[in-house]
Simulated scan of single mutants.
Amino acid sequence: MTKPVRTATADLFVGYGHFSVTDYDADIPELGPAYANGLVGVDSGGAAVLTGTATGKVTVTLQVLHAEPGSIELDGWDEVSEVSLDSEEGFILVHNTMVGPPRELDEIAYVGPGTYRVRVHARGRDIAPHSHAETPQEHYLISVWPAPEAPATVHKQTDRFGHEVRTQWKKP
């Protein structure tokens, strides 16, 4: 596996069942692209990550990498998907759109403006979906590295929450 440039973990407050991975001054990302795979999607505003928790805290571990990891960690995770994110400013951070980011989860785009690959791992979204969590019950691992634009890729889809989201999205 590629050695991380930086690794950090923090509890992140989420609202409205999602959090964002965006440039500092980017618009709030639309949720529609994330509904398609049930976890993460990108639009011109950045990436939106869907959480089972409606409001409250989740734990996020961030790995900033030089290059794509040598393997994809699937064991212990319910959902794993990745997307490409274009950073015009070169200042990407993980945050809730209502509350600023934990200090540990900012400055992801360490090589400046350009395209980055964002791989999101999720577990625990089925514990108490659509609820408020004072104590984090969900965990996310977000790996980010500079990479050319590529299609969204799903590596694993096994939680009930993601299935519910994908099923609702496909209804006419």
Rank of each mutant, 00 (worst) to 15 (best):
H95C: 12
L85N: 09
H18Y: 07
T153D: 05
A8Y: 05
M98N: 12
L74V: 08
T158G: 05
P146E: 05
T51K: 03
R119L: 10
A36Y: 08
P101S: 13
F91T: 14
H139A: 11
V21G: 12
T9L: 03
A150T: 14
P136E: 00
E68F: 06
S131E: 03
R119A: 07
V118D: 01
R6F: 09
N96H: 12
T2L: 00
A48P: 08
E88P: 00
R125S: 06
E89H: 10
S20L: 10
G45N: 10
V49W: 11
V14W: 03
H18M: 06
L85F: 12
F161E: 01
E82S: 15
T135E: 07
K156T: 09
A128G: 02
H163C: 02
G15R: 13
E164T: 15
E149K: 13
D159L: 04
G17H: 10
T115R: 12
N96E: 06
A36E: 14
A128H: 04
T167D: 10
I108D: 06
H18L: 04
L12T: 03
G46R: 09
P69G: 07
V42D: 04
V144D: 02
E79N: 15
I108R: 07
G52F: 04
E88W: 07
H66C: 00
T9I: 05
A48E: 00
N37T: 08
A67K: 03
T53V: 15
E104N: 00
V120I: 15
W169F: 15
D27S: 15
G70H: 04
H121R: 04
R123N: 09
S143C: 05
N96V: 05
V94Q: 05
R117C: 13
H130T: 08
G15V: 12
Q157L: 08
K3C: 01
E104S: 10
G38T: 07
A47N: 04
W145C: 03
G90F: 11
H132I: 08
A150Y: 06
D106W: 02
D106T: 14
H95L: 14
G56S: 07
V80N: 05
A54P: 00
L85M: 11
S87H: 12
E138M: 02
V154A: 14
Q137E: 03
D78I: 01
E164I: 14
S20F: 12
S81V: 15
G38R: 04
V111A: 15
K57H: 08
H139N: 07
E89F: 13
